[in-house]
């Protein structure tokens, strides 16, 4: 009689282990909300399967109903029933409390790190050839203007970095400039933090608006020096097609 419930529980537990522990071995870990959604779908499937006929319904739910009704129970099963009946209101009470209690955590911030650039910056190409001289000049300018925050090693660990929130970008990380085109960096350096759209939370960024101080030529050469120093290559149109 207990067959369907135990198999249902095994299927759910197996699914949870698969989603939570096995799947991350081959791909990125799933967010808990997605795991919950998949488990809810599996549970629905189990319930639909169990209620397909009167006999399957009896096989699945009969033991549950008999357990809850308490008819003819003695010893351990009586205690288990009592425990379930006490736990359920406590669970509801705890849920109510945890939903209503004021949080001590500051508001969650969903800051977009690489928001879309304004149209005028899309598709611009670096007008300066990648000669050793230009790269050398770019690295010199980087050392003077960028390294205090972004670091002499292009790793976002300059002497000023620990004080900033958000922290300066780490260019040696394959998730930053390697994912971006040169035109994107041109926008970010030229307009700085104050040039970000609302989803980039410009009010928090300490990135200077370098167009006020540096000519465009310097900015393009800094970009060259940055990619070369961080051992990254810019994303290009060809790769996106």
């Amino acid at each position: 009689m207990k067959g369907p419930i135990i198999s249902g529980a095994i299927i759910l537990a197996g699914m949870f282990i698969f989603l939570k522990f096995l799947l991350p071995l081959v791909t990125a870990p799933l967010p808990a909300s997605l795991i919950y959604l998949y488990l809810a779908l599996v549970l629905s499937g189990i319930l639909i399967y169990g209620t397909m006929s009167a006999s399957s319904l009896e096989a699945m739910m009969g033991p549950v109903f008999r357990f809850l009704s308490g008819k003819g129970q003695t010893g351990a099963s009586q205690m288990a029933r009592l425990a379930v009946l006490v736990m359920f209101p406590l669970l509801v009470g705890w849920q109510t409390y945890s939903r209503l209690v004021p949080s001590d955590l500051p508001p969650a911030e969903n800051r977009t790190i690489h928001p879309a650039p304004p149209g005028e910056f899309v598709g611009l190409a670096n007008p300066y050839p990648k000669t050793p001289e230009n790269i050398m000049m770019g690295k010199g300018l980087y050392a003077a203007y960028c390294s205090p925050c972004h670091g002499a090693n292009y790793d976002g660990k300059g002497p000023a970095a620990p004080g900033f929130n958000p922290p300066p970008a780490n260019f040696s990380d394959p998730g930053t400039i390697a994912q971006l085109q040169e035109a994107y960096l041109f926008w970010r350096i030229k307009k700085g933090g104050v040039g970000l759209p609302v989803e980039g939370m410009p009010w928090k960024s300490a990135m200077p608006r370098w167009e006020e101080e540096l000519p465009e030529e310097f900015i393009w050469k800094i970009i060259m020096g940055e990619y070369d120093g961080a051992h990254q290559t810019p994303r290009t149109w060809e790769e996106e097609e």
């Binding site: 109903f65 809850l68 009704s69 308490g70 008819k71 009946l85 359920f88 209101p89 406590l90 669970l91 509801v92 009470g93 849920q95 109510t96 409390y97 209503l100 209690v101």
Partner: peptide, 25 residues
Amino acid sequence: SIFGWVILGLVLATAFELVIVRKLR
């Protein structure tokens, strides 16, 4: 007032259980 809501939750959940168990019995 949070504790008032928690008590209401406990009372409703207990009442709900009583109804179910009574029906099953």
